[in-house]
């Protein structure tokens, strides 16, 4: 049963949204969602890598020998990740300092490799482009949602770009536990729970 082109894009936003439905890419999801800004930055970086690697792998899918396909994918993905890393260092240096090691780690992000293996190696270029874009946007929105919950309740602020905006008044006692590592697991667990509740018919 072939999906329509719109469906290829939309599936990444809800039915197959990477961290919550496929439960992929949890390492950056847990690590960088301390502020919305970090979530946006990480999401955009991953989306760029996903779209570019999907397009390139899909266009090379007939020449890539099946035995060394993983090596080919990694070369392609690592190239785009390095490009992202250099561009961020040049034009978004403070954000690069905050995301640190998690930018180079996009190479081993299982969403990127997963889409290459499960989708781009089997389908046409345009379909792969839409798939990558949908997954990337879904991932970005998920990171933003999780980061918003953690940052809002953990600090009382929301940082969309550079400057934090105060949402709760000064009398608010933040659950600072939420912005620490254990809080990430709890928040993710609750989000998964919520997604399953909403998705249940």
């Amino acid at each position: 049963m072939a999906k329509s082109l719109t469906q290829e894009f939309v599936k990444g936003l809800w039915n197959e949204v990477p961290p919550f439905r496929l439960v992929l890419g949890l390492c950056p999801t847990l690590a960088v969602t301390k502020s919305v800004e970090n979530g946006i930055g990480m999401g955009i970086a991953t989306t760029f890598v996903l779209v570019c690697s999907n397009v390139l792998i899909s266009s090379l899918r007939k020449v890539i020998p099946s035995k060394v396909r993983i090596a080919c994918y990694i070369v392609i993905i690592a190239t785009f990740v390095t490009v992202v890393e250099l561009v961020m260092q040049a034009f978004a240096y403070p954000l690069f300092l905050k995301l640190g090691i998690f930018i180079p780690l996009i190479v081993v992000n299982c969403i990127v490799l997963g889409r290459a293996e499960a989708f781009a190696s089997k389908f046409g270029v345009f379909r792969s482009f839409l798939d990558g874009l949908g997954m990337g946007v879904g991932f970005t929105l998920s990171l933003m949602a999780l980061a918003a919950v953690r940052e809002l309740f953990g600090t009382g602020f929301l940082t969309f770009w550079v400057t934090p905006i105060r949402i709760f008044g000064p009398s608010y006692q933040p659950f600072s536990f939420l912005v620490e590592a254990p809080g990430a697991f709890m928040a993710l667990g609750l989000m998964l729970c919520l997604m399953n509740l909403v998705g249940k018919k």
Partner: peptide
């Protein structure tokens, strides 16, 4: 098998 990896 590896030519493409090397070229890439």
């Amino acid at each position: 098998q590896a030519w493409l990896v090397l070229v890439l």
